[in-house]
Design a protein around this nucleic acid. Structure first.
Lengths: 251, 251
DNA sequence: CGTCGGTTTGATCTAGTTCAACCGCCGTGG
DNA sequence: CCACGGCGGTTGAACTAGATCAAACCGACG
């Protein structure tokens, strides 16, 4: 697993951020945009499968994912790994570290990613001068909490088949919201090992479960990627209502 | 399951809140205290096993738990229940609802509880005028996220024995931090059904697992309560490092 | 052309589930 | 006063979802 490549100099100004064109994100006032832009320190570009943040890191920075896929995870001493959640464009990375001071999980990329780098110690300034943005950060934290709640329900109480169906429907919906689904023809860039570590299952059983979903024509498995054929049926299997499609902030 | 009893008129002013004496909470400035006090609308007292907030509620209020134990949970349509986390004195209740607008989980009490009721729509005022308190709310949200991360690791990757040991060590440590452990002689007011629904196990297997812990003299099971005898050994079994003992805010 | 990571498959095993009782306690209604 | 029912906890037996073990396949890549 390669280390993340170093930060490049600032490229795109936030005012011209292509993500903002997506109607899924709420509009910012020019003033807010100006502040966010001043808050930004640079960009970080990184290869697939590279570490972005590591558990225990004290010097954690705060990022927003601009493009690509990543995931958060924790491991036990003997190596058992649990994936906690996935990160898609617009998601905040490293908030826990910035707010509380130390990271208790790691973050790794699944695809080539570009991150927007913020100076962690300017967070107090943001809270001082931009209550609206501060509220947005809390909003994003609450949203993460929600996703974790649903994940926990899944891992704790759904069967292997339900879990797998839920995960894929969930990721597909998130990708769709930020316009990644079209861009990549409904392809989710994960291996079956990632699925296993998300669902709390063994790879073997994960493989057999995914195979059944494929036989039912709900997904098609590619090399290191999952193509979603029938998101509705997947959500049905899981008994999952779907994400609420509210506009969200983009810091 | 009884409904929560109605809110009483305001009793204790925040300045005299007994919780603040606990050194585990950070000191507030007189000005902050004054605002929090004005933010408070009243108190809610409620019986054990009563609903405090319900999934889907749109009119969710924001609370701080003053005394007692409660828990957050979600259920699937067929009744399978997953407990997401527990709530102890000083914990914020209903933040998701207040920030995003709708609750996606329910909250129920485990013991008699007293909650401090806030007016949800004054939250923007708090963010406007008290950036420090706003930051504190984000801090608390991040802390919840952390606890969920560890829970997810537990349910996804730990064995039944490890999970049970982790849960009890975790709850015991939290109780101790807020001074509940001494007060109740290390008694956690839960049934084995609660444990099962937290760990994602059946009651039968939960019973057998707890029994083993009891045989090893690590816990003693009482009627609707778990007495913790050896928190250190429990944490060891789980391979869990314990909570970081940082001072935290109390809104 | 060999190796390696990701995927697939079958066989065997086991941790945890489900089913079925039973006990003790407590609150309720006759 | 007692009978009854329900809840929380306990226990054994039978069962199964999912784990583990083992081997092979396949495409990419040096």
């Amino acid at each position: 697993m390669a280390l993340a490549t170093v930060a490049h100099a600032r490229r795109i100004p936030c005012e011209a951020c292509p993500l903002r064109e997506n109607e899924h994100f709420r509009d910012f006032t020019p003033e807010e945009l100006k502040f966010v832009s001043s808050f930004k320190r640079g960009e970080l570009v990184s290869e697939p499968a590279s570490a972005i943040l590591s558990e225990g890191a004290h010097s954690a920075q705060l990022f927003t994912l601009l493009s690509g896929w990543a995931f958060r995870f924790k491991t036990l001493e003997d190596g058992r790994r649990q994936i906690l959640n996935y990160l898609l464009p617009g998601d905040l990375v490293g908030l826990q570290g910035s707010v509380i001071g130390e990271m208790e999980h790691s973050v790794e990329s699944l695809s080539p990613v570009v991150l927007c780098v913020f100076q962690r110690d300017t967070l107090p300034t943001l809270f001082e001068n931009h209550p609206g943005l501060a509220f947005d950060i809390t909003w994003l934290a609450s949203r993460e909490e929600r996703m974790l709640d649903e994940n926990l329900l899944s891992v704790g109480r759904r069967s292997a088949m339900e879990r797998a169906a839920y995960l894929i429907a969930f990721l597909h919906q998130r990708a769709e919201q930020v316009g990644q689904a079209k861009a990549s023809k409904h392809l989710i860039p994960i291996t079956q090992q990632h699925v296993a570590d998300t669902l709390g299952l063994s790879i073997v059983h994960t493989n057999k479960t995914l195979r059944k979903l494929a036989e039912r024509q709900l997904i098609r498995w590619h090399d290191r990627a999952c193509e979603v054929l029938d998101p509705g049926a997947l959500a049905d299997i899981a008994g999952w209502g779907g994400l609420t499609d509210r506009k969200r902030p983009l810091i």
